[in-house]
């Protein structure tokens, strides 16, 4: 009964600012087309956008996966590296290690992780310097469906 309805998977290329946000806007369109609630779509869109930007700005490339379940949306962003040196600092609003070229495009304000967390019902990050980063986020579709 509680089966996954469908999933969307996008590859994110490093340094590819020209297409920054395109996976997220496609995800948004797909979710809307499938009748997912507006406020859920907005949250998922924001989380995906931040995760996508992080992969573009910092990683050597990765994968953005969105699973649609009857009661929730699961977002998984996985990259191959280089991992985050100080995760605790990265979670602080305003802390950023973005290169100046990213800031020229209006990114790198150090709001990525705080913003993803703020929009998630469940949020966790696994990272290892020299390896990779794995972000897992859950957005519940309605308070009534929330799994305990």
């Amino acid at each position: 009964m509680w089966e996954e309805k469908f999933r969307l998977v996008y590859r994110v290329k490093p340094m590819d600012l020209a297409s920054a946000g395109s996976a997220s806007s496609q995800i948004k369109v797909e979710l809307q087309r499938n009748g997912i609630e507006e406020d859920v779509v907005r949250k998922v869109g924001i989380i995906c956008f931040e995760a996508e930007m992080n992969m573009i700005l910092y990683s050597t490339g990765g994968k953005l996966k969105v699973e649609v379940w009857p009661d929730r949306i699961e977002i998984l962003a996985e990259d191959d590296g280089p991992g985050i040196e100080d995760l605790q600092k990265a979670m602080e609003p305003g802390y950023s290690t973005a290169p100046p070229w990213a800031q020229d495009y209006g990114f790198g304000a150090g709001m990525g992780f705080p913003n993803m967390k703020q929009n998630s019902d469940v949020f966790d990050v696994e990272t290892k310097p020299g390896e990779g980063t794995r972000i897992h986020s859950v957005v519940y579709r309605s308070k009534d469906n929330e799994t305990p």
Partner: peptide, 27 residues
Amino acid sequence: LALTEESSCLITGITGPQVIRVAEVLN
């Protein structure tokens, strides 16, 4: 992306296509 809580128009000096993707995500 981080601060706006509702759909509203954006007044900016940014000229790259990323601004439109943000606009799509945030309505």
